[in-house]
């Protein structure tokens, strides 16, 4: 049976025209496919580049967005901005001594704890610490819990170096610091102004500005129940 069937099918051929048309069709389609693939790969490359750039931008935005601010006022006044990872991302001197100090002590990208310690132990700060000048440390942040924790850590570092009687520390909201600057008061003066004006509304910012720092501290210590450093130690 094999032979007749084989002979019957043997006679069936794809015509030469059909072969040529098939070759042409495949060539055209593969060329289209190739150019589409090139376009797709170019698009993919561009898209991955854009994604990488967007990711980098997000990372930069995340890293360089300040989440809290630490202000230290001795004579040199310094402002440190801290990101969500608790790293110092910006340091600024608020007066001439402060500007000179930040030029000599590198604090950028350090964890804020280490930055404060480094600053307190720096050669430039030594004369102020030795002369028992009053050190004001304030932490400003949007998240109250985190601000308290930062204040406890910063205050502990400051107290260790300068002694309890020489350090004033407080946590402030962003609104508080705006108000203090609007009234041209230091953090210490503003805290005292708030307390005094609550007792006696006739107390003005000018009156508070005229009071000596030590007197203001003594005034405030009457109201202060305990320090954040003590609270942190108790929590531990």
């Amino acid at each position: 049976m094999d032979e007749p069937i084989r002979s019957a099918f043997e006679a069936v051929h794809a015509s030469e025209l059909s072969r040529q048309r098939t070759k042409l069709f495949v060539r055209k389609k593969t060329q289209d496919y190739n150019s589409r693939r090139i376009r797709q790969s170019q698009r993919r490359r561009m898209l991955s580049g854009l994604c990488a750039a967007a990711a980098l931008l997000c990372l930069c935005l995340f890293y360089f967005t300040p989440a809290a601010m630490i202000e230290m006022d001795v004579n040199p006044s310094i402002e440190m901005k801290v990101n969500r990872l608790d790293r110092v991302i910006q340091v600024r001197g608020l007066n001439a001594d402060g500007r000179e100090l930040v030029q000599n002590v590198s604090l950028l990208n350090l964890p804020y704890n280490r930055a404060v310690r480094k600053l307190m132990l720096s050669q430039e700060m030594e004369p102020f610490i030795r002369s028992h000048d009053l050190i004001t440390v304030s932490v400003v942040g949007a998240a109250p819990g985190h601000t308290e924790e930062m204040l406890a850590n910063v205050a502990c570092s400051a107290l260790t170096v300068a002694g309890r009687e020489n350090v004033f520390y407080c946590a402030l909201s962003e609104e508080d610091i705006r108000q203090a600057r609007a009234l041209d008061l230091t953090v210490l003066q503003y805290q005292a102004f708030q307390l005094l004006s609550a007792q006696d509304p006739s107390v003005t910012a000018d009156i508070v500005r005229a009071i000596d720092k030590r007197e203001l501290l003594a005034l405030l210590s009457d109201f202060e129940m305990d320090s954040p450093c003590d609270r942190a130690a108790r929590a531990k």
């Binding site: 007749p4 069937i5 002979s7 019957a8 099918f9 043997e10 006679a11 069936v12």
Partner: peptide, 16 residues
């Protein structure tokens, strides 16, 4: 369709 075949082959092809 163009199939170059003999009568007997054509008959077999038809049958298949």
């Amino acid at each position: 369709c163009p199939v170059e075949t003999t009568d007997s082959s054509r008959e077999v092809l038809e049958a298949v």
